[in-house]
Computed example of a mutant assay.
Amino acid sequence: MSSYTNRCILVIDDEPDLCSIVKFTLERLKSWKILTAESAQAGLMQAETQQPDVILLDLSLYGEDRLTMLQSLKTNPTTQSIPVILFTATDPSDDSLGFDPSEFVGVILKPFNVLQLGEQIIEQLGW
Rank of each mutant, 00 (worst) to 15 (best):
M1Y: 10
M1L: 08
S2P: 15
S2Y: 07
S3A: 09
S3Y: 05
T5W: 03
C8W: 03
I9C: 05
L10W: 08
V11A: 05
I12L: 03
D14M: 00
E15Y: 04
E15K: 02
P16F: 07
D17I: 04
L18W: 03
L18P: 06
L18S: 09
C19I: 01
C19R: 00
C19V: 01
S20E: 11
S20R: 12
S20T: 14
S20C: 04
I21V: 15
I21E: 11
V22E: 01
K23H: 11
K23N: 06
K23S: 14
K23F: 05
F24V: 04
T25L: 01
E27N: 12
K30W: 12
W32S: 02
W32E: 05
K33H: 12
I34G: 05
A37F: 10
S39Y: 06
Q41A: 06
M45I: 09
Q46K: 10
A47N: 04
E48Y: 05
E48T: 13
T49A: 10
T49M: 07
Q51E: 01
P52S: 00
P52Q: 00
P52F: 01
D53G: 10
V54R: 11
V54G: 14
I55L: 10
I55E: 03
L56H: 08
L59Q: 09
Y62G: 10
Y62A: 15
G63L: 06
D65G: 04
D65L: 13
D65V: 10
R66Y: 02
T68R: 08
T68D: 09
T68C: 06
M69C: 06
L70G: 02
Q71P: 00
Q71F: 11
S72E: 13
S72W: 12
S72P: 06
L73T: 12
L73D: 12
L73W: 12
P77D: 04
P77W: 07
T78C: 12
T78Q: 15
T79A: 13
T79K: 10
Q80Y: 14
Q80R: 15
S81C: 06
S81M: 12
I82Y: 13
I82N: 12
P83R: 07
P83M: 05
V84D: 01
V84M: 05
I85P: 08
I85L: 13
F87E: 09
T88M: 08
A89Y: 13
D91K: 12
D91R: 05
P92S: 14
P92R: 11
S93K: 04
D95T: 02
S96R: 15
L97M: 11
L97G: 08
G98N: 00
G98F: 00
S102W: 10
S102N: 13
S102T: 15
E103V: 07
E103M: 15
F104M: 09
V105P: 00
V105Q: 14
V105D: 05
G106P: 14
L109R: 02
K110H: 09
F112Y: 15
F112E: 00
F112K: 10
V114Y: 01
L115W: 03
I121S: 03
I121F: 00
I121T: 01
I121G: 00
E123P: 04
E123G: 07
Q124I: 11
G126A: 07
G126N: 02
